[in-house]
Every structure is written in C-alpha cells, then in structure tokens.
Amino acid sequence: MTDDPDKVWPTGLTLREAEEVHSYLIDGTRVFGAIAAIAHILVAVSTPWLG
C-alpha cells in the first residue's frame, strides 16, 4: 500500500514480477498469432478467397 520504489503501481507487484506477468502475455500473443497465421494460410490453400 505504501510507496515502494521497487513496486509497480497500481498492482503492488515488484518489477520482476510485473515483467514475468507481461512475458506470459507476450508469449501468448506470439503463439496465438502464429497459430492464426498458419490456420489462415491453410484455409487459403484449400478454399482461396483472394484472386
């Protein structure tokens, strides 16, 4: 609750903790993005919607 230079406002997590939580978000975005890209390419191969 008190101001601690090591803690990130407003969650009360330390910097390292906050970075770790953030890394899960980044990883998840990457994995889901890659999956979506592959799925789109495969759909385009079987039922092309462009050209």
């Binding site: 495969l42 191969v45 079987s46 039922t47």
Partner: peptide
C-alpha cells in the same frame, strides 16, 4: 486449431 484445415489440405479438399 490448425488440425482440421491441415487434414482437409492433406486430403486434397477443394483447391
């Protein structure tokens, strides 16, 4: 998530 499309491509579905 990609499996059904992969299987359809594998089996030569559509184009």
């Amino acid at each position: 998530a990609i499996m059904p499309f992969a299987l359809l491509v594998l089996s030569g579905y559509g184009e």
